[in-house]
Design a protein around this nucleic acid. Structure first.
Length: 423
RNA sequence: GUGGCUAUAGCUCAGUUUGGUUAGAGCGCCAGGUUGUGGCCCUGGAGGUCGUCGGUUCAAGGCCGACUAGCCACCCCA
């Protein structure tokens, strides 16, 4: 029979690697908590409409990357491709705009995009992110960036660069958009087909095109900065000032556009040098002041970011993993099984991690297994121990082994563990 | 979604000038070398329909095609 394998673009997190993902996530939540962010969890499935309206029909995510299906009731559902729209939906649905502003929220979990998989890109991947909702202050933009920055530093991720831009708002973006179109339309026939469509539907996206011909045309184009209205100009300056105060270096990147429709004003990404040429964005985000209304809820300006944990785990220093089982209880005779079970339970209640090897394999095999598991202590129970009401406690580091009364076993085990810890 | 590279044991890989008998190694795993004892060492063993399907051929792990999956570039982003 044919074997069943995992779905394309998905990955199993085996025990040797999962701790790295857990640790990176826990550290993010911890750093965020020090800035007042509280964790929120939303469903992995949402009504398709949430993303169609929130993220935007013309975006790559919605137009070709969503896992969409009909449930048994005929409703169109989608596995979430990103976290911001769901969090804003939850925020509006729970009436949180009636609470403190801004409300600082953090989240972590799997996201899904039906994209072609590659290194650093998966169909199910994991994000850690923040949203600060209910306040339009540009200083909040810098705060969100500061959390991301501090988190990456704490993970030991180096060679990062913060790319910062403003793409304007409803007051000034239309003018810039029009200037772009007017500038480029005369030479539209020199664009490739995809970029020609973008010229009509989402001309800003042409700015970060990598097509050499497009780039050549875009080179002479006016920059967003020249078109920003006073409000946007001021906001951008204040984000920069706040970043300076945090001591975070950044690079103005007038070509940074980002692919989601809900962004306004501030957009940013954090890039990593070692992933140059590949999937080098560790983290991306921005401000989305009109999103809540798009979802049918009261206005709730906000700013946030999302970071890809697979990419971060790939370059972060991996923490050493402690052995799973420092104590192994081993039987050397079938009759010793009940006593071994009782001893194991006593040790577990005392707080130790204990594996019980009660089968009929040879003593040599069981000792080898205990060693391979990383055990520090082995408690051996054979017919001799059974007769004497004792247990042989062996320190696997030193090889020292002594026979103690069963009742004394927990103390003897603890003594070895303490000694091992001190050494 | 486009182009390119790759696909042999659990892992990393060999596989012999241009297709030719029972497909190999190291590591790992299991067992023995100690009537009941780990790490080192020695010996033995298990494990592969050579990604799948089809084609060429007297003969295919080596050639051809399609499919699947992984990787790289593009696209885009996390």
């Amino acid at each position: 029979m044919a074997v069943i394998t995992r779905m394309r673009g998905t990955a199993d997190w085996l025990p040797d690697r999962l701790p790295a993902l857990r640790a990176a996530t826990a550290l993010g939540l911890e750093v965020a908590a020090r800035y007042g962010y509280q964790e929120i969890a939303t469903p992995v499935v949402e009504p398709t409409e949430l993303f169609a309206r929130g993220v935007g029909e013309t975006t790559d995510i919605v137009s070709r990357e969503m896992y969409t299906f009909a449930d048994r009731g005929g409703r169109s559902l989608t596995l979430r491709p990103e976290g911001t729209a769901p969090v804003l939906r939850a925020y509006g649905e729970a009436g949180l705009h009636q609470g403190p502003r801004p409300l600082r929220l953090s989240y972590a979990g799997p996201m899904f995009r039906y994209d072609r998989p590659g290194k650093g890109r998966y169909r199910q991947f994991h994000q850690f992110g923040l949203e600060a909702v209910g306040d339009a202050a540009p200083e909040l933009d810098a705060e969100v960036i500061a959390v991301a920055w501090e988190w990456l530093e704490a993970l030991g991720v180096q060679e990062t660069s913060l790319q910062l831009n403003s793409i304007g708002d409803a007051a000034c973006r239309p003018a810039y958009r029009q200037a772009l179109v007017e500038h480029l339309r005369p030479s539209a026939d020199r664009l490739n087909e995809l970029d020609r469509q973008r010229l009509e539907r989402n001309p800003l996206r042409l700015l970060d095109s990598k097509d050499p011909d497009t780039l050549a045309l875009v080179a002479g184009v006016p920059e967003v900065g020249e078109f920003l209205c006073p409000g946007c100009r001021d906001a951008l300056a204040r984000v920069g000032d706040a970043l300076d105060a945090y001591g975070i270096p950044y690079q103005r990147n007038p070509r940074l556009v980002r692919g989601l429709d809900y962004y306004q004003r501030t957009t940013f990404e954090i890039w990593h040098a070692s992933l140059e040429g590949a999937q080098n964005a560790l983290c991306g985000g921005g401000r989305y002041d009109g999103l809540s209304e798009l979802l049918g809820y009261p206005p709730a300006p906000g700013v946030g970011f999302a970071a890809g944990l697979e990419r971060i785990v790939a370059i972060a220093a991996t923490p050493a993993v402690a052995p799973a089982a420092p104590v192994a209880v081993v039987t050397l005779a079938p009759a010793a099984v009940p006593a071994a079970v009782r001893l194991s339970q006593r040790l577990r209640r005392a707080g130790s991690a204990v594996t019980a090897d009660l089968g009929s394999r040879s003593a040599k095999a069981k000792m080898r297994a205990a060693d391979a598991l990383g055990a520090r202590v082995v408690c051996l129970l054979g017919s001799g121990e059974l007769d004497g009401g004792t247990v042989a406690v062996r320190d696997l580091r030193t090889g020292a082994q002594r026979s103690v009364a069963l009742a004394e076993a927990p103390r003897a085990v603890a003594a070895v563990l303490d000694g091992a810890g001190a050494a």
